[in-house]
Amino acid sequence: MGNETTVNWFILLGFSNVTSYTLLLFAVFLCIYIATVLCNVTIIVIINVDDALHIPMYFFLLNLSFLEIGYTSVTIPKLLENILALDKTISLRACAAQMYFFLFFGATECCLLAVMAYDRYIAICNPLRYPIVMRKRTCIQLAALSWVCGCLVALGHTTFIFRLPFCDSNVINHFFCEIQPVLKLVCGNTYWNEIQIIVAAAFVILMPFMLILLSYIHIISTILKMQSTKSRQKAFSTCSSHLAAVSLFYGTAIFIYIRPKSSYSLNVDKFFSLFYSVITPIFNPIIYTLRNKEVKGALRKTVSKIIPKI
Rank of each mutant, 00 (worst) to 15 (best):
C167H: 06
N126D: 09
I306P: 06
V186N: 09
L25C: 09
N82R: 09
F101N: 11
H218E: 08
E194R: 12
A85F: 06
T89W: 00
A245T: 13
N173A: 14
F162R: 12
I32W: 10
L206C: 14
M57K: 14
L243V: 14
K184G: 06
S91V: 05
C151T: 13
L24W: 07
T89G: 09
S304R: 06
G251W: 02
Y264N: 07
K293Y: 03
I282V: 15
P308L: 06
S215W: 00
I124C: 01
S240Q: 10
A202G: 15
Y58Q: 11
E68W: 03
I205P: 07
L24P: 01
A245L: 06
M1H: 10
V74K: 09
A117T: 02
C149L: 11
G14K: 03
A96C: 05
I287K: 07
I279Q: 09
Q180H: 12
F104A: 06
L79N: 02
A144S: 15
C139P: 11
P127L: 07
L214G: 09
V186R: 11
K225D: 02
S215I: 00
F271D: 07
Y118F: 11
T222A: 15
F203K: 04
K234G: 05
N170K: 14
P165S: 05
L64V: 15
D87P: 03
T158P: 06
E178R: 05
G150P: 09
V18M: 12
M207W: 04
F15I: 05
F60K: 09
N170R: 15
T289I: 12
S273N: 15
F255V: 13
C95Q: 03
Y121L: 08
I220G: 04
G251V: 08
I197S: 10
P165T: 05
E109S: 08
F102Q: 11
T5N: 12
I217P: 00
I161K: 05
I47V: 14
Y257Q: 09
I198G: 05
E178H: 11
M134Q: 03
I195V: 13
K184R: 14
V115R: 03
T72C: 11
L224S: 08
E109Q: 11
L103F: 01
S215A: 01
G2P: 03
F26Y: 15
Y216K: 08
W9K: 10
L142E: 04
L152T: 09
K184N: 09
F175R: 02
E194V: 12
M207T: 12
R129D: 08
V199L: 14
K270F: 01
S265P: 02
I132Q: 12
V148L: 15
M207L: 15
A97P: 00
L92W: 13
S169I: 07
I140H: 08
